[in-house]
Design a protein around this nucleic acid. Sequence first.
DNA 1: AAGTGGTCTAGACCACGTA
DNA 2: ACGTGGTCTAGACCACTTG
Lengths: 242, 242
Amino acid sequence: MLTTGKGSISLYMQIKELLTTKIGKGEWLPGSIIPSEINLAQELGVSQGTVRKAITELVENNVLMRKQGRGTFVSIHDTDRALFHFFHITDNNNHKVLPDSRVLHCRTKPASRMESAKLHLAAGTDVVRIERVRSISAKPTMIETITLAAGSFDDLGREGNCDLPNTLYELYEKRYGITIHSADEQLRAVAASRHDGKILNLEVGTPLLEIERVALTLDKTPVELRISRCSTRNHHYQNTIF
Amino acid sequence: MLTTGKGSISLYMQIKELLTTKIGKGEWLPGSIIPSEINLAQELGVSQGTVRKAITELVENNVLMRKQGRGTFVSIHDTDRALFHFFHITDNNNHKVLPDSRVLHCRTKPASRMESAKLHLAAGTDVVRIERVRSISAKPTMIETITLAAGSFDDLGREGNCDLPNTLYELYEKRYGITIHSADEQLRAVAASRHDGKILNLEVGTPLLEIERVALTLDKTPVELRISRCSTRNHHYQNTIF
DNA sequence: AAGTGGTCTAGACCACGTA
DNA sequence: ACGTGGTCTAGACCACTTG
């Protein structure tokens, strides 16, 4: 179980990994309560303070949530979290608005070289590729191309199963048991293609903000590749550096 | 001094604010060591654990740095910190490279409406406006327009005092005692102007990534407005969401 | 050897939510 | 009334740095 003594990793770190593993394996599901600090401490044969330190760090990593008087819970991906944590587009008054979305295509195809590289897939593996338009205040504002490993999302994209909700990360969590925990984003300025222009109602060549995001699970497995091209006439990407 | 009892804020929070204030006022300078946890605890009449909790949160906020066996230090803005913390442009292999910079202009002028709004200055206050080009691997890659309240940076920009170092935040800290602690960034895609094109050696209309950054001190006072327009042909803006 | 931060314990009391 | 997390204490031992 827990190892102690010289040269071994600290107790609270071992506990942190133990808790992380339970969550990663689905033993403790998102939204469910975990045992109290006192119970965990007794089970593991350590003091409450040690468990507390492990939990504190997991709360800082958004893996757990504490609610005073109630208990500690595995974090859940509701719409709010998606909006405030992963969605960085705001209007020019810095207000976040969750855009609507409309699916254009949804197909299962072999992965491109770029897709298999970014998602760590073997060449030629099948992926689901979704293209959708997102509108803010009824104005088409961004085009998204989303790529998922077909194996992990088996029924998605098959037989016209394309009636997708607006916040996909909630779907991944609820229907497929895959929780997005972090993401790497790369931003570039690109020129609108003819296709972009037609859908976003812009001139060809208009500068667009391209966001290439790889979304990762708790154990850093890449799960989704999402390329968004956004008009930044009335909106922008907001980032705060602490 | 410290207040305790019902309805009052927690001890460690009061200590956190006390330490923050000392740093903000310049009583403890960047790079200097602060009293040990035990000394602080004795001075303040609390236990070491309480001081520790306050310090821990300040370390998480990048205000302090701990060095085991040595002590706790006020964070310093060396080149590395500027590079790893505030500079988000990387090449397409996700490697950070600190660009060179060459100053084009450096003038003191009345603030524009936008500048006075973003820097919380009265209309018409004098500001220093610096324009520079930054090159990566000898290729001009970004144009920066930097605006500072002239009052806080008195001699800067006067009498051709424009021999500026590459990492400005180090200069602000060392010469003017102003430490940049956080920043708000807004990213947009824009078309290269004739001026942009000439300097960056690009066609007019080429999409550029525009980064508008307001840099803040520890107490959230806006100090610098920086607008960067970057070619994203060989580079991009990298952001990780945890 | 002495001093620092890092980990860990055992126990106290408080604030909050539920029953 | 009870159980939860939140704060705080006092003290132990370890790991690291410096003199």
